[in-house]
Nucleic acid binder design. Structure first.
Lengths: 409, 409
DNA sequence: CCGTTCTGTCGATGCGGACAACAAATTCTT
DNA sequence: AAGAATTTGTTGTCCGCATCGACAGAACGG
């Protein structure tokens, strides 16, 4: 009975069925493989009910029988037959649009990356050019898909502000995009018509880490992404914090030092001007053309350079504001922060501890993403898969079969 | 199918019934009086189903038949019979603990204040003394309650950090409380055992304005409360943002000016040091002992004093950080901001417009609370009523009847 | 005054989940 | 090593809940 957000609606029995089937699938998706017994206890439904739902999932070709359930023996009694994501089942296309490269993957249920391709992208490139590159990559990863498998949708991670209502990219500073309908561009380049979802990269990083990364089971987490600019994705109470337009989480433009440097947003001393990629590059004398690969540059250090200490402290101070505002249980440091934190972790920690209120501080933990640099990509897969968990039957009905031949035509 | 947050659970038919009955009651509660026809279209259920649910609500003594539905004639056809909150139905006790006074009200469904009492509270008073005053006020408002009416619970608004798990008041700076179990204290003083819910005043202000104030129908709003300290309550996606421990929304300690004045939290230049009551009092030469009545002092001004302009700008700048972070559709300015905004609205608006990102700025509106100074009080009533909307039958079963005689004993 | 239009009520129906009983598959015990 | 104990999957039945169809009642409009 989770979602149907924007509610006030009643529940009819058809909705119950939809919801239970979707929730079941969500559990199978989350665990990859799970026993029916676990499903009964997780969902609080009767064994017979679970059996019926599992049967329906199998007849839809989504899951399959996995006889003795891996190796995890738990105790006496008849072992529970496992439910597993079927091999030739539905899949989605995930796109992670970075500042200098695009990664495209074909992802099945359970978060399994079935195929993968990437290509450099000219920064400051026209949107239609980027769209064409992405479309080519998509053709590539669809190549070896079984013809019977259905494409449910496309999810795209964008480093910028994305309007929730229609997926319009309002502003992507590093790509120099304003009001670009990138979803439409990609679809046009493909000649397809499938559901496309776009969202901010930090939001998707948070989602992915929540579902299958460092934040499994944590209902209040924040993914802070260093990606030239700085942004955050917020999971609050187990759901994504989107805000009215979908722009929530732009913590890079929190006021940090009113006497500081000018920010591209027009203000002085945004947090981003202290912990953004350009600031860090300047501090360590990194040439401007390597800013997009800042993570690799940082990986090159064997021991922390003195110049980064202030950055670490500033990162901690900014995180303190975030902790005071959101009171998360977990903060995941993504993007180039993933390479920065091992260098100046002590400064970050102490900066945070100095400035955060005691109450929210005591329950927060800083970690690195468990999914490495794939967080946003897998998050993009998650939003594309989302319709399946709301109504599996409808989503499968709307999905596209035999995509390869359609693409050829 | 809204809540049952923390989910992943399935839905059985018993839960369906509970949920539908609760949702129906929520609608009646929100509207005060509503026709069955509106209920059918709002909840998307069949007429017969609604009839059954309404019947159950009536047999529980919660609602009653309101024959011809007020005056709003809409067109041809048989007019729809109204559903109205019954007079002698269940009620809650709402407590708004201020810095210098406590307000207690007996509130029925529909948000109707049935009785009301208040008393001054010594600031820096011991918690048990405050608890005794509150208990006395509660006895007072329960005095004229019909013996058959049931007390569902007590909701308490506290100006401080409240731990969600158990309602412990972790820190209330203006009362000088640390780790006070105020709910237990009040119950002990009353000699009763009913459900008690505590929450932060700004959170409850947000809730009340969302349910029956300036933010009806707005799913993303923020209530910024000036109340000696500064805090915010956040409604995101229609639900309260609580954070892991329940401390979310402490925007008063956002970093604002690192060269600024020391804050009681130990840092320099928190936003609160610029727009908090002490800062404003100092700016307008208000004696320190009147800080708690800052709203009245501000009301006294007929035209905006020059000294407040900088405060207005600072308020706008801080709100810009909030807008960038949360992307709300509505910001409600509560507490003494309610008196401040009419004076320096222009400065606030321009400060906000200067510093917020264009995308989130374009959809946000600043308003004053529609519930005046009662926001937190009515919010306290709302959280106490909440169990009724989750499961009316169970909540009513656990409620206390004939409270007056129990209090006497 | 009658047709229109909408609402409320009653009984029949369908559907989904719960329950009980039984069969199957292991582990534990003797 | 064999039986007891335990847990799971399956089947058939029952019950609760929402829907549907039909009919009566109550204003409104011409």
């Amino acid at each position: 009975m989770t979602p149907q957000r924007r509610a006030g609606l009643g529940t009819n029995q058809e909705a119950v069925r939809r919801h239970n089937l979707g929730t079941l699938l969500r559990h199978v998706h989350g665990a990859g493989q799970i026993s029916r017994a676990e499903l009964t206890s997780l969902m609080g439904l009767n064994r017979s009910t679970i059996a019926g739902l599992v049967g329906e999932l199998e007849s839809l070709g989504i899951s399959e029988h996995a006889t003795p359930m891996g190796g995890a023996r738990q105790g006496a009694g008849r072992p529970s037959a496992g439910v597993r994501i079927a091999a030739g089942g539905p899949y989605v296309i995930a796109v992670d649009l970075g500042v200098d490269r695009a990664v495209v993957a074909r992802v099945g249920l359970g978060g399994r990356v079935l195929a993968r391709a990437q290509a450099p992208v000219h920064s400051h490139g026209e949107a239609w050019q980027v769209g064409a590159s992405v479309a080519a990559l998509i053709r590539q990863v669809v190549e070896d898909a079984p013809p019977a498998a259905a494409l449910v949708g496309i999810g795209i991670s964008v480093p910028g502000l994305v309007r929730r209502r229609d997926g319009l990219v309002r502003l992507a500073p590093n790509l120099e995009w304003h009001d670009v309908s990138f979803g439409g561009i990609v679809l046009a380049a493909l000649g397809l018509d499938v559901p496309v979802s776009l969202a901010n990269d930090a939001d998707l990083g948070a989602l992915a880490e929540h579902v299958r990364g460092a934040g499994v089971g944590v209902d209040d987490l924040i993914y802070v992404s260093g990606n030239v600019g700085v942004g955050a994705g917020v999971i609050a109470g187990g759901v994504r914090l989107e805000g009215a337009g979908g722009y929530a989480g732009e913590v890079g433009h929190l006021r940090f030092n009113p006497q500081g440097r000018p920010c591209h947003c027009g203000n002085l001393g945004c947090w981003e001007t202290e912990v953004g990629a350009h600031a860090i590059a300047e501090a360590i004398d990194c040439p401007p053309d390597k800013v997009a690969q800042l993570d690799e540059v940082l990986e090159g250090f064997t021991e922390p350079p003195r110049e980064l200490r202030a950055t670490g402290t500033a990162l901690g101070h900014g995180l303190a504001s975030i902790v005071n505002t959101f009171n998360p249980r977990l903060i995941v440091l993504g993007g180039y922060f993933r390479s920065l934190y091992p260098l100046v972790g002590a400064e970050v920690d102490s900066g945070l501890a100095d400035r955060a209120l005691p109450a929210p501080l005591e329950s927060v933990t800083l970690v690195l993403p468990a999914l490495g640099s794939d967080s946003a990509l897998l998050g993009a897969a998650e939003i594309a898969l989302e319709p399946l968990f709301v109504d599996p039957v409808a989503a499968l009905g709307a999905a596209l079969v035999d995509v390869r031949s359609r693409l050829a035509g």
